[in-house]
């Protein structure tokens, strides 16, 4: 039985789409357009937030290690999931949050361990849909380690696949419509 995720194309849950793409061989998920983001598990339970849907999908395929490979890494994933919707999602905290992220990414390729996890998916997705960040990136004013990490991930297969389905970055789409 395939799960179905509904997404609103106007504000796609990028972290969820990355998880779906990454897990497509292990967890068949249909993506359909809807008014709100949601994954209905059964008559009583529907997950509606990016962290919840990501967690659920990753737990269906533990062999893919999207939730890390031990209890500490799993908790680090939780830390970043919450960061992606908490400090990073709050305009007042955004500058501090990116600075913190920059500090953590200094010596790292991925947020946790040696491969992409839900942590990278959720944080990358939150930045990719944030116009303040995209403008900083376009103008060369982005924090260097975050920018390096962001562009590196952008080149990875699942990120490319998801990016194709996304609306263009806001700045360039504005130019195109002029």
């Amino acid at each position: 039985m395939a799960a179905t995720v509904s997404i609103n194309p106007a504000s796609p849950p990028i972290g969820v789409l990355l998880a779906v793409e990454h897990l497509k061989d292990s967890v068949p998920v249909q993506v359909q357009e809807g008014k709100n983001t949601g994954l209905k598990v059964n008559g009583d339970v529907t997950f509606t937030t990016v962290p919840s849907i990501c967690r659920y999908l990753a737990r269906l395929a533990p062999g893919k290690h999207l939730y890390g490979s031990n209890s500490l890494e799993a908790t680090e994933v939780d830390h970043w999931l919450e960061f992606s919707v908490g400090r990073l999602g709050c305009p007042a905290d955004f500058t501090d949050a990116v600075q913190y992220l920059n500090q953590v990414l200094g010596p790292r390729t991925f947020l946790i361990g040696h491969a992409a996890t839900l942590a990278d998916f959720a944080v990358w997705g939150a930045l990719r849909s944030n116009n303040v960040w995209l403008n900083m990136l376009d103008r060369g004013k982005a924090s260097p380690h975050v920018a390096r990490w962001f562009r590196f991930l952008e080149e990875q297969a699942e990120f490319k696949a998801v990016a194709m389905a996304l609306p263009a970055k806001p700045e360039s789409s504005k130019l195109e419509t002029r």
Binding site: P62, A74, T75, E76, D78, H79, E82
Partner: peptide
């Protein structure tokens, strides 16, 4: 590791010690 922030995530870690099969 990155220090874990937030009461929620500290709780999750301790919860995983109490129940190692939590995620699976």
């Amino acid at each position: 590791q990155t220090p874990i922030h937030g009461e929620s995530n500290v709780a999750r870690y301790l919860g995983r010690i109490l129940q190692p099969s939590y995620d699976s």
